[in-house]
Amino acid sequence: MASTAELEKIVSQVRRDIVRQVHAVNSGHPGGSLGCTEYFVSLYFEIMKHTASKFSMDGINEDVFFLSNGHISPVFYSVLAHSGYFPVKELATFRKLNSRLQGHPTTHEHLPGVRIASGSLGQGLSVAIGAALAKKLNKDNSMVYTLHGDGELQEGQIWEAAMYAAAKKVDNIISTVDMNGQQIDGSTEQVLPMGSLRAKFEAFGWDVLDLDKGNDIAAVVATLQKAKEHTGKGKPVMILMKTEMGNGVDFMMGSHKWHGVAPNDEQLAQALNQNAETLGDY
């Protein structure tokens, strides 16, 4: 078990990696990535049973993760690299020609740690259900994790999948929705209010957990641990995780404006000043 202080050190480095990746190519999605940093660090360094050095597509007897909102690839890549899936220095190739680190994650370039292409929203939950069903057929008791954006829930396929997972008792899956309340055109409330997501998922038959402090690493770890205890009981498990978009970089916090915009040189320096180099920059 890693201590909270150890996990926070990783969080700080991952935040640096996110803004540096996006700055270097003047493109990418820093806001959602920063907001989900604690979630990713908790998952890969504390919660999931996985061996980075022995990555295989099938993930037999390992926990597997699917990123459905693929645009937050900077945080995914940084955490995969620091977990040992590929060299950290490869983060310097993010979004560049001939890179395995495509703008949105893909299996097409054979980057270890990625098991599905994502980016076109709404597809990851269905894929995760398939992987969870394969685990059941293989008598594999390990877990399937997914992450989704809240705006992503406006895609209809999510609700097809939500209906199926509950109806067919896919209870080896822990999904999380990043409730940062923002999407490209504004807040979710402005663009398309979704009402009570708890009520919706409960009505669909999910076991729903709230995580009000999605940027508090201890709270994230505790909720994911609790979610594990809720699996295997006939219901899929959903964590509604409140985060702040852009968390950790003060001028990016709480606004949709940093959804898909890169910081300039000065803004990068400011962002790096707020997040200490703890594991060494790539």
Binding site: M57, D58, G59, I60, V64, F66, R115, I116, Q123, G124, L125, S126, V127, A128, I129, G130, A131, A132, L133, A134, K135, L137, N138, D140, Q157, A161, Y164
Partner: peptide, 9 residues
């Protein structure tokens, strides 16, 4: 989507 996921395994 489920079919794609079932191949993983």
């Amino acid at each position: 989507g489920i079919a794609a996921g079932l191949t993983i395994g």
